[in-house]
Design a protein around this nucleic acid. Sequence first.
DNA 1: AGATGGGTATGATCGATATCATATGAAAAG
DNA 2: CTTTTCATATGATATCGATCATACCCATCT
Lengths: 206, 206
Amino acid sequence: MKRTAPILPSALAELLPATLHVLCATITLGKGSYLFKAGRKPACMYFVVSGELTLERPGAQGESIILQRTRQGFAAEASLQSASYHCDAKAVADTVIVSIPIRELRTMLEQDPAFALRWISMLNRELKRLRLQCERLSLNTVQDRLCHLIETEGRGGRYPMGSGLKSIARELGVSHEALYRCVASLEKGGKLHRVGGDLVQAGVSG
Amino acid sequence: MKRTAPILPSALAELLPATLHVLCATITLGKGSYLFKAGRKPACMYFVVSGELTLERPGAQGESIILQRTRQGFAAEASLQSASYHCDAKAVADTVIVSIPIRELRTMLEQDPAFALRWISMLNRELKRLRLQCERLSLNTVQDRLCHLIETEGRGGRYPMGSGLKSIARELGVSHEALYRCVASLEKGGKLHRVGGDLVQAGVSG
DNA sequence: AGATGGGTATGATCGATATCATATGAAAAG
DNA sequence: CTTTTCATATGATATCGATCATACCCATCT
């Protein structure tokens, strides 16, 4: 784990009041290393900039249960209120994280109503995204999930596949092979095209 | 749609400041009726007490895309900030809803920091629940999903099946037949028992 | 008592996907 | 320049679950 001067992504810089900016730190985690372990008292809130962080805890059968998987955004927001972590946070890839001290964050939320409302907006957007993802994962074919993704997260039938089809597959909860086949089949049927780095849905519009 | 004097569920009564209590109204919706339609300006925030409410909008291919499905809790929290609804809200069963005026809600969030923090707590809990559900829906067998549900939403390996296995099946995103079979098979293997109205996981504890 | 409806349950079938294997091309590393 | 690695791709196979059908039990209604 390495700490450096805070370089905030713009989403975070616009959300947080200036007072908090200087209190943030950037942390880089190597694949397989832990950000925190269960039992520890939360001192910071974490924002994943890149890579992938999972929150997990052991299940009754000894297997590890994944509670959350964050590739971009806040992890363990609930630690804002809780007295101790109930899970481990593990980087499953090389990961860059920004930490924000909870104590000062809480103080600012209490003292700055505009900030509190921005924070609530952020949580609302996050909720919306997660609800969409749940609905998507409830669909039972790869094609349905992919189309739902393009319709809801894309813009005008275009969805950027920045990090590749493989990572989209994980997001859709399907194997990458299945996704490759699905995309190939949709392309063959003329219902989908790859333009630049985007997946573009052929508008039936009729 | 029928409006009556506000009878708030305790979760809501404890969350909202007293000032807002009297401004709430209870609404009962018959199966198939709409709470609001896309385009309208949001005036109220809605809390589903019982029944089931979906938010949907038409997809590019004409099919209807479900954005959210609420059986208990807030629906369309994001309407707190948005200028108009982007979807329809439809009761897919006879449904009881409490409405809270957005304008006054926002005012209170700005003026009452303690309330704002309670609201943030509520959103955090909701996020936590949804993240768990996403992880659960990413599991590919019925058994894995059921065990994950019991481990994460239950208490000490017990999960109440209050509304029956059929509704749990919907929550798990599987057919009820598949769930019946899964439960039967786990019971046969001694890994699960039905005690009272609960599903009880046999602790391997060794 | 008979009818109706819903949850529970189980059987049979079919299709979709996970999984394993293999191949190719591009980029990165040596 | 060769080697390694990784995303992309496609084939073969086995399995799990969706779906349709049937049946039972229990509550409610008539």
